[in-house]
Write a protein that binds this DNA or RNA. Structure first.
Length: 229
DNA sequence: CCCTGAACCTTATTTACATCA
DNA sequence: ATTGATGTAAATAAGGTTCAG
């Protein structure tokens, strides 16, 4: 990689030994001057195309700018450090923004889940009532598919276990029961009629990514069914 | 194959200087 | 005009890697 023995690079040692600050702790008349605009301009130009200098190029640049090769080397070292630090800041901002979006989605889905649970409770209560015969047409549909927009309900009433599975995040079982999945798939239908649409709430389209996945991917359901998230 | 020294790297820190309240 | 705080860039130090000899 780097650190090759280069007769040209060896030149630097000789020059370095002559540099006024070499091994000096301090000098009262220290002349640590900032580089001129012209020097910085050229150094920056070179840095844009190559962040590391070949020894020969370093000597050439040093001659051109009237600097010691060591100074050029140090400038590039510091420049790389500054560049890296800025990149880290940028990466942080990007990650932070991603996190904020996910947090918003999480909050929305939490509310959505609560709402669904309440709806299921109401439905199961109404279905459980022995005297009514008309409410069957308002039941939960077990034949639902994601792509299906018809909200007709022809399925048998919810079993207590099914409801509990959702309510208490008992998703380990649900994941492998097609029946349970079908229950949850009705989220897709619910969102179409939901009074609080995600678009209105957060200004971006959740339907395509979040709900789109939730319909086809049981792992999503598994994830959001847990309380510890 | 191992050792050594040179050259260079990254990272952290120090130092000198500029700017501003 | 002076001064202390603060920011920035040049330089140093320490420790690591690579590679020729």
């Amino acid at each position: 990689m780097e650190g090759k023995h280069d007769p040209v690079a060896h030149e630097e040692l000789t020059e370095q030994a002559q540099t006024p600050w070499k091994k000096k702790k301090k000098s009262k008349t220290e002349n640590k001057r900032r580089f001129s605009d012209e020097q910085i301009r050229l150094l920056e130009t070179i840095f844009e195309s190559e962040t590391k200098l070949e020894p020969r190029k370093k000597l050439q640049v040093a001659r051109e700018l009237g600097l010691q090769p060591r100074q050029v080397a140090i400038w590039f070292q510091n420049r790389r450090a500054r560049w890296k630090s800025k990149r880290i800041e940028q990466d942080y901002r990007t990650l932070r923004a991603d996190y904020d979006i996910l947090a918003s989605r999480f909050e929305f889905l939490k509310k959505e889940k609560q709402s669904l649970i309440q709806q299921l409770q109401k439905l199961s209560e109404s279905v459980a009532e022995p005297h009514d015969k008309n409410k069957a047409s308002k039941g939960v549909d077990g034949d639902t598919k994601c792509e299906q927009s018809n909200p007709s309900f022809q399925r048998a009433p919810l079993e207590g276990n099914e409801l509990l599975g959702l309510q208490f995040g008992n998703s380990g079982d649900m994941e492998h029961t097609g029946q349970a999945r079908e229950e949850l798939v009705s989220i897709d239908e619910y969102r179409n009629e939901s009074p609080v649409s995600p678009e209105n709430l957060y200004g971006f389209d959740l339907a395509d990514d979040i709900f789109g996945q939730s319909c086809s991917n049981p792992q999503w359901l598994n994830f959001w069914g847990r309380e510890d998230h």
